[in-house]
């Protein structure tokens, strides 16, 4: 009973994941979180530095938000990922070299994945199966099976 419920939840999650750029959004959210973690400067100091210091917090927060938006509103993924990649690159200047480079890397990767994602694709064909099929077709053709091939 519980086993079936779990399988149902997993299938539901699988289906939910299939309908959105899951890894892209997740990576971007994580990147924003990572950069915020490396900062953690006391708020007093941030107030002292002023607007520039604030930007150091604003950009990673925006990154995390965009990541969540990609996950929960995937139809707008182009806008989110374009803004996300610009903001991710901006953190290099404002937030500890983009969270010591790690956050920047995750963010840009996430945005590229979200940008390149398309819904409703054919299932993936591994290169090996594709090659095998090609060989099978090449073998079949000389036997005079052209008529039935298509």
């Amino acid at each position: 009973m519980s086993d079936r419920a779990r399988r149902g939840a997993r299938a539901a999650f699988r289906g939910w994941r299939a309908r959105r750029p899951f890894w892209g959004g997740l990576l971007l959210t994580l990147a924003g979180g990572e950069i915020l973690l490396t900062e953690k400067a006391s708020l007093k100091v941030v107030m002292h530095i002023g607007m520039q210091g604030l930007a150091g917090y604003l950009l990673p927060t925006v990154m995390a938000l965009l990541g969540l938006l990609i996950l929960f509103n995937p139809t707008q993924r182009l806008f989110y990922s374009l803004t996300g990649v610009l903001v991710s690159l901006g953190t290099w200047l404002t937030s500890n070299l983009g969270g010591f480079f790690l956050g920047l890397l995750l963010g840009v990767t996430g945005c590229c994945l979200a940008f390149g994602w398309l819904p409703d694709q054919e299932p993936r064909v591994s290169r090996r199966t594709r090659r095998k099929e090609e060989r099978a077709r090449a073998a079949a053709v000389p036997e005079g099976a052209e008529g039935t091939a298509a």
Binding site: A18, P74, L82, C112, G116, P123, R124
Partner: peptide, 23 residues
């Protein structure tokens, strides 16, 4: 052949060439 391998459902997926446009 592929459908039997992957369970036959259509999923969203990252197209490498499209991602490269941004990458």
């Amino acid at each position: 052949a592929a459908a039997t391998a992957a369970g036959g459902e259509r999923r969203g997926r990252v197209r490498a060439r499209r991602a490269a446009v941004m990458a």
